[in-house]
Design a binder for these strands. Structure first.
Lengths: 216, 216
DNA sequence: AGATTCAGTTAGAGGCTATCACCGCAGCTA
DNA sequence: TAGCTGCGGTGATAGCCTCTAACTGAATCT
């Protein structure tokens, strides 16, 4: 967090102000959602006048894109760190849930409602595939399940270039996809508040879905 | 669709204009997302001046809430119709997917990123529980799985009032929750475009997840 | 020291939500 | 049928917002 001691004084200043803008933006999004993000409000809170921020970001869209990028980056880094310290699939699931609960709006920045026109820049999808690679690794490390390959496994074997040349078996790829979709299913509904009023513990549902994943 | 032949002429006119406003709003949301909904733009397209719409809706929020309500209503009606014509759990899954693909933004109106402050009105959650009841019915009709009750089943048995007094077994409730979360997991990621670039067929992943649900 | 670059300013165009005061007609009532 | 009332619609206006343009002053580079 405390590097950026490089470059000219001007560059350092610029980076610092950019970071401060993003900090305010994150706070604003966390409390009111991404659609309520206002450059003007950020400027005012920083003691600047509105147009000043356009020296640092081309516009609202670029700022949001930057925050989306950071969110992807944060998720990928968190996953890689967890894997590096020996987390198995269960550990990754726990990591995922902690990361999501720590800042729900950050989660929605990555997995939330898309704006119809918008296409994420290429590096974002590259970061996403880093995350996916960690998941696939963990799935490949799991013991084989008794049953033979599924029908879907066969299909996956023919369409696996999204795995970026990962040598895992089709069954591992399928498990990775299931890991992703099932946990996202629980998490996104929980974070969106669809379980409020139902008194059961979402953490237990999450754990149950994870169990079904390993045991098949 | 062609009822509303009731009430005074004024009421009929009023209902018709309200419907026309909602029609334009739906179209606008479908093409640009809910955050881009503009009362002004709708008014212009209808040949009215901005403030005229405030005779029909208290404001932007009320219009959106109304569309959310309609989306919930549409989902519940679609499910009940499917169940009434004999659809089993697989049929309901197909119904869900068709409904979602027919209008992704309508799906996100129900299951998308929530605005932090917002709380859905009571009738919306009541409509949601109608939908849930249909799913639970279908799950209760399924044959028991061999394995005994899960740990999560025990927890659910103690926290089942959300099922609105439905007499289904805890295992059926668990299956209903899994049905919901798993299919939502695949659908929401697909609709959000997270599978684009991965060449596999989302429909097959959806089917695979559904299989895992019945077979456990 | 002089030229240049860059952060920040004000002014302003154009869009939005929302309120207000006003007008004119449709529809109800005497 | 004549008149009153209420409703749909209007323009004006306030107060947000994003974003551009022209300008200023100071830090940096040569």
């Amino acid at each position: 967090m405390t590097q950026a001691r490089t470059g000219t004084p001007r560059e350092r200043y610029r980076d610092q102000v950019r970071a401060e803008i993003k900090e305010h933006a994150r706070e604003q999004i966390a409390t009111a959602g991404a659609s309520a993000l206002s450059l003007n409000a950020i400027a005012k809170r920083m003691g600047l006048s509105g147009p000043a921020l356009y020296r640092y970001f081309a516009g609202r869209d670029e700022l949001i894109t930057e925050l989306v990028r950071d969110a992807y980056r944060s998720l990928a880094d968190t996953f890689r760190a967890a894997a590096a310290s020996g987390a198995d699939l269960t550990g990754l699931a726990r990591t995922m849930r902690s990361w999501a609960l720590a800042d729900p709006q950050r989660y929605f920045l990555v997995f939330g409602t898309p704006v119809p026109g918008y296409h994420a820049p290429a590096d974002v999808t590259r970061i996403a595939s880093e995350t996916m690679a960690v998941i696939i690794d963990a799935c490949a490390a799991l013991p084989d399940e008794g049953d033979g390959p599924t029908a879907f496994d066969a299909h996956l074997d023919g369409h696996r270039q999204w795995a970026d040349g990962h040598p895992a078996s089709a069954a591992a790829l399928r498990r990775a996809l299931s890991f992703w979709t099932r946990l996202h299913g629980v998490l996104s509904l929980e974070l969106a508040g669809h379980f409020t009023g139902m008194s059961f513990d979402p953490a237990l549902l999450y754990a149950a879905e994870l169990d079904g994943l390993s045991a098949h």
